[in-house]
């Protein structure tokens, strides 16, 4: 009931401006697929199990999954139950069920998210993942990387580096054509640093 989070809609809301259009985002995702392909070969991490973080991460993961022609279905993670700001802002009103198509034990995992800033989403996602089992390795692919890390977490594959002012918001709009919007988060919101929210 508390309007602390952005609902996941294609509409980025007021006070936002287009940062990267659909063509630029698609090109970035193609680059990611190539880089990921190289990385997976170098690490001998095939076949990988790809997992998207709800919601923006899933949109990016669906495209990567298609580009890499992975046979196994995509996994989905919702990190709402693992957020470290539950004590501050209460619970996310819309929790989508996490779904992992196969056991994660001894698998090479490719975790996909839309935007990385503080690194807290990924911390939470790793916790969820390890509650499902013990993967052999975890790699991280994000569409947009921006400064502001608060945890020692770095992506292995990055689509684009976003140079934004402190406090500015970067949000992926989807699920149709994907485009990135920048802007100030609505006033009174305690959260909302990176991406479309968990």
């Amino acid at each position: 009931m508390t309007p602390t989070h952005t609902p996941d809609t294609a509409n980025p809301g007021p006070a936002t401006a287009l940062y990267r259009d659909a063509a630029a985002v698609d090109a970035a995702i193609s680059d990611m697929a190539q880089a990921l392909d190289t990385l997976l070969s170098a690490r001998g991490a095939r076949p990988p199990l790809m997992i998207g973080i709800h919601t923006g991460g899933v949109w990016v993961a669906e495209r990567l999954h298609r580009l890499l022609a992975l046979a196994e279905p995509l996994g989905y993670l919702d990190i709402s139950f693992y957020r470290d700001d539950f004590t501050r802002i209460g619970m996310h009103p819309r929790v989508r069920p996490s779904h992992l198509p196969v056991a994660v034990d001894d698998r090479h995992i490719v975790l996909v998210d839309d935007v990385i800033q503080s690194g807290r989403t990924i911390r939470a996602a790793l916790n969820v993942l390890f509650d499902y089992g013990r993967p052999a390795s975890v790699m991280l692919a994000v569409l947009a990387e921006r400064s502001g890390r608060e945890l020692p977490i770095e992506p292995n594959v990055v689509g684009l580096h976003a140079d934004l002012a402190h406090g500015e918001h970067l949000k992926l709009a989807g699920p149709g054509p994907l485009s990135l919007y920048r802007g100030s988060p609505p006033v009174g919101r305690a959260s909302g640093a990176e991406g479309a929210g968990p």
């Binding site: 957020r83 800033q117 503080s118 989403t121 939470a124 608060e150 959260s191 909302g192 640093a193 990176e194």
Partner: peptide
Amino acid sequence: PLTETGDA
């Protein structure tokens, strides 16, 4: 304690 950034 209140801080600016949320969990993201």
